[in-house]
Simulated scan of single mutants.
Amino acid sequence: MNASRLTLLFFFFALATTLTGCDAIAGIFKAGAYTGIIAVFVVVALLFFIVNKMRGPRS
């Protein structure tokens, strides 16, 4: 297992153990629907950015 895969695995493990689904959903619903949509968009964009950085430059 190379270092980038190990880092990605550690990142997802840290997310899974620190964020509980019920708390996150309750906070989103308390803040409102538009805030939830924006939060989902930001998280997906951040994950896309991280995955692309881990892959490295494409030829």
Rank of each mutant, 00 (worst) to 15 (best):
R55A: 12
L19D: 05
K30R: 14
A14S: 05
S59H: 11
G21R: 13
Y34G: 06
A33W: 02
A39V: 14
T18K: 05
F29E: 06
G36F: 01
A24I: 15
M54T: 07
I38G: 09
V51M: 08
I38A: 15
I38P: 04
V51T: 09
T7L: 14
A39C: 12
I38Y: 12
F48H: 15
L19S: 10
K30A: 15
S59W: 08
V40T: 15
R5F: 12
L46N: 07
T17P: 00
T20K: 04
P57E: 01
A16G: 04
F12Y: 14
I28D: 00
I37L: 15
V43S: 08
A14D: 03
T35D: 14
G27P: 01
V51Q: 09
A31M: 07
R55C: 06
I28R: 00
L9D: 09
A26T: 03
F41E: 10
V40H: 04
L46H: 05
I38S: 11
G21A: 12
V43G: 05
T17S: 12
T7F: 03
R55S: 12
A24Y: 08
P57A: 02
R5Y: 11
L15G: 03
F41V: 12
L6E: 05
V40R: 01
A45D: 00
F49I: 08
A16H: 02
Y34T: 13
V40A: 15
G27K: 00
K53F: 07
F13T: 11
R5P: 00
G27H: 02
F12N: 13
G21Q: 10
F41R: 01
F11R: 13
V42A: 05
V42G: 03
A31C: 08
V40K: 03
V43Q: 02
V44R: 05
G32C: 08
C22I: 13
P57C: 03
K53D: 02
V43Y: 11
F12A: 13
L15R: 08
A39Q: 05
N2F: 02
R58P: 06
G27I: 00
L8I: 12
L19P: 02
I28K: 00
R5Q: 14
I37W: 13
A45I: 07
A31S: 14
A39P: 06
L8K: 02
S4P: 00
I28E: 02
F48E: 09
F11Y: 13
T17Q: 07
K53Q: 14
L46F: 15
A16V: 01
V51L: 14
A16Q: 02
A24F: 11
I50K: 01
L6V: 04
S4W: 02
D23Y: 01
A14L: 12
A33C: 00
S59G: 13
N52K: 13
A3Y: 00
K53T: 07
M1N: 11
R5S: 11
F49Q: 11
A16S: 06
I37P: 06
A39T: 15
G36Y: 01
L9N: 06
L8M: 14
R58G: 15
I25P: 02
G56A: 03
